[in-house]
């Protein structure tokens, strides 16, 4: 079972290697270490978001509000920084995490207590959070010259030759890995996705766990709110507009089943990396960036077709095991 799960990610990894290989045939400098490091750094934010989305999708839910949450949180910290440059950056990051947590908890509460399907709740909060961004900012932008140098500089500072942004992503990946493989909560998340009814009988509080996963995705979005704004140094209502679908696309390409219960941290990371490589490689090999959307769309469809075949095979293997037992 475990070997099989690894199998899927190995295939995705192979696809990524082939992709990098193809690009370097046209442009040899693409595969050097510096560029790959840059690639990882560019994809860090998408990875963190995809991991947050992953835990939600694993429980058969979906969070469409992550990009709006990111936009709102980013605006909050940017405005705080512009108005009070004295607030230390670590405190701002904590504020970003808390704001993200609150927005995620609102989603989670509505799903948990009122039993509204998550797609409806987050469809609503998707527009509400972005609208709220307009209300708090009055439609104004926060520009680079209004942000303090520390606010912009933190994630660019190098530590052991790697930017802080990449370190944050590595830290987040590691903690998600521990969460999913070493904790009871991680187990419950998988269990709910595989069979919610059986989970209830196994003593798992399904509603509360769903509340927690929405809090997790909210925190991830909040963290990325700060990271996004300080990376692209502009905070506006349009930040990450429509990005929620990129996040879901990364999960889908990473082999996370939208039906819940199937998926891994490695898959989400590789899925995000795959999308990141496509957007980085196209300009390098002289393909118009206008092709990017169609290519990632095709990649999503291809990934779903392959995943569906994988899931079917996996079902049969479980049956065989059950017969043998």
């Amino acid at each position: 079972m475990k070997a099989f799960l690894r199998y899927r990610e190995v295939w995705l990894l192979a696809a990524i290697v082939v992709l990098i290989g193809l690009v370097s045939m046209r442009f040899p400098g693409f595969a050097n270490l510096g560029n790959l490091r840059q690639l990882f750094n560019d994809t860090s934010i998408l990875m963190i978001l995809a991991l947050g989305q992953m835990v939600v999708i694993l429980t058969r839910s979906i969070d469409l509000s992550m990009a709006s949450n990111l936009c709102f949180t980013g605006m909050v910290v940017a405005m705080l920084n512009a108005a009070h440059p004295a607030i230390p950056i670590p405190l701002l990051i904590v504020i970003a995490l808390l704001v993200g947590l609150v927005l995620g908890a609102i989603n989670g509460f509505l799903v948990w207590r009122l039993n509204i399907p998550s797609i409806v709740v987050t469809l609503g909060t998707l527009t509400i959070y972005r609208g709220a961004t307009f209300v708090i900012s009055g439609g104004a932008w926060v520009n680079a010259d209004q942000m303090s140098p520390e606010f912009i500089g933190l994630q660019r500072a190098a530590f052991l030759g790697i930017p802080v942004l990449s370190w944050i992503a590595i830290l987040v990946i590691a903690s998600f890995f521990l969460l999913m493989t070493r904790t009871a909560l991680g187990r419950s998340i998988y269990a709910i996705g595989v069979n919610p009814t059986a989970s209830v009988y196994a003593g798992i509080d399904v509603g509360r766990t769903k509340f927690i996963v929405f809090c997790i995705s909210g925190v991830a979005a909040g963290l990325c709110g700060y990271l996004w704004i300080s990376r692209y140094v502009i905070a506006s209502v349009e930040v990450a507009n429509g990005y929620e679908l990129n996040i879901i696309a990364a999960c889908v390409i990473g082999g996370i089943s939208i039906a819940g219960g199937i998926g891994s941290v490695g898959g989400a990371v590789l899925g995000a990396l795959f999308l990141g490589i496509i957007s980085n490689a196209l300009p390098v090999i002289n393909i118009s960036p206008f092709w990017q959307m169609a290519i990632s769309g095709s990649a999503i469809i291809l990934a779903v077709v392959l995943n569906a075949r994988g899931e079917r095979r996996q079902g049969r293997i479980i049956l065989k095991k059950a017969e043998a037992a």
Binding site: L245, A249, M293, A294, S296, S298, A299, I301, V304
Partner: peptide, 9 residues
């Protein structure tokens, strides 16, 4: 979601 990117792409 895939065809959405594909068609607009």
């Amino acid at each position: 979601i895939g065809t959405m990117s594909l068609f607009r792409g």
